[in-house]
């Protein structure tokens, strides 16, 4: 008869398997811990460049942006995260009227970070950054005006 199946065999086999488990956790007990201490390591921590935490509009030193108010991003967004308000401005030199951006609103609270807006933008006016500390107390604070 198989020793493993006898009464004594079962007891011994169980004890062996249990001790193996205990041994493994004991080794873990003494190995250095893997925890990253988040708020303490804020300065040194590495977040992937590609991480998408929030949409932003790159502004130059005068606060100008590259947006041409074409509305492609707002149209391609699956759930209406982006709304664009435009106005018509007449160029003084040429006299032609031109559509310019008045307000670019982005609702961080319902963005799904699918990157379609960034992909579709013809001027690379918008991009995602990796600043993830965005929790707020008020829902309305999540609706952000991106242009200045």
């Amino acid at each position: 008869m198989d020793f493993k199946k006898t009464y004594i065999g079962r007891v011994i086999y169980s004890l062996v398997s249990l001790t193996t488990g205990l041994k493994t956790t004991l080794i873990e007990f003494f190995t250095p811990k893997v925890t990253e201490q988040y708020p303490e390591n804020r300065k040194t921590q590495h977040i992937s460049e590609r991480h998408r935490a929030m949409l932003y509009m790159s502004l130059d030193e005068n606060g100008n942006n590259k947006c041409i108010a074409c509305g492609l991003c707002a149209n391609t967004c699956p759930n209406g995260t982006i709304t664009i308000k435009t106005k018509m401005v007449t160029d003084e030199e040429t006299g032609k009227s031109k559509k310019v951006l008045e307000e670019y609103t982005y609702d961080l609270g319902c963005c799904m970070f699918c990157q379609l807006c960034v992909n579709v933008c013809p001027k690379d006016a918008i991009a995602f950054n990796n600043k993830y500390e965005n929790a707020v107390f008020d829902r309305s604070k999540l609706v952000i005006k991106l242009n200045k």
Binding site: Y38, Q45, I47, M54, G109, F113, Y132, E133, N134, A135
Partner: peptide
Amino acid sequence: VYIPGCPPRPEAMLYGMMQ
């Protein structure tokens, strides 16, 4: 507290908890 993200990364959740 509202923690935006889809899904928010773990640090963002901790940040929300601190809020």
